[in-house]
């Protein structure tokens, strides 16, 4: 199946602006907020949200990046395939309102790993979750606080977020994985 575009560049931008407003409203300002993007595509999303809130509130918001590979629950299972990358948090998350940012919310397992990773790095006052796409199929009792778009999907579909900073294009696409040609996520 050819891929189908669900969101284009301006759709993504509008969703992020709305999320940014919700974050500021929910936290009654942006003073003690910090963004932590989950690698890879959560990081540019976190940077964009910080930029939008900066333009709204004239507040500089710290942005960090989190690699969750060391916290995954499938590392010791056979044939894992993740390269460990660097976590970069240039600020102390203790007593901050930490907003975790990821591109797609699916089973909730990577968020579970991210929560464990954050807890090892400090004691945030709260941790909230912002995602661009919620595609359903949660396997854990975790849900997002801020969602760009809910897109109900089937298990054999793949949602792929493309971002300028990483992929040289802004779009969200869905495609069906057919048997042998499928690339497991």
């Amino acid at each position: 199946m050819p891929e189908k575009i669900l969101l284009n560049s301006s759709d993504i931008e509008r969703a992020l602006v709305r999320i940014a407003h919700e974050i500021v409203e929910h936290n009654k300002g942006a003073k003690s907020i910090a963004f932590v993007g989950i690698k890879t595509r959560g990081v540019p999303l976190a940077q964009r949200l910080a930029r939008i809130i900066h333009n709204m509130e004239q507040v500089d918001i710290p942005v960090g990046s989190l690699d969750i590979t060391l916290y995954r629950d499938d590392v010791t299972s056979l044939g894992f395939k993740h390269v460990v990358q660097q976590t970069y948090l240039p600020f102390d998350i203790t007593n901050k309102q930490v907003i975790l940012v990821d591109d797609v919310f699916y089973t909730g397992r990577s968020i579970r790993a991210a929560l464990d990773a954050l807890m090892d790095l400090g004691r945030p006052q709260t941790i909230q979750l912002a995602v661009l796409i919620d595609r359903g199929h949660r396997e854990l009792p975790i849900r997002a606080d801020f969602v760009g778009k809910n897109i109900p999907t089937a298990h054999n579909e793949e949602i792929k977020v493309f971002l300028n900073e990483v992929d040289a294009v802004d779009k969200v696409a869905v495609r069906r994985l057919d048997g042998e040609n499928s690339e497991p996520k």
């Binding site: 910080a50 930029r51 900066h54 500089d60 942005v63 990358q85 990483v166």
Partner: peptide, 16 residues
């Protein structure tokens, strides 16, 4: 005006 405190790590490849 961009004054965001952002990670300036070298790893994240950028488009172009």
């Amino acid at each position: 005006m961009e004054r965001i405190v952002s990670p300036n790590e070298p790893k994240l490849s950028t488009a172009g």
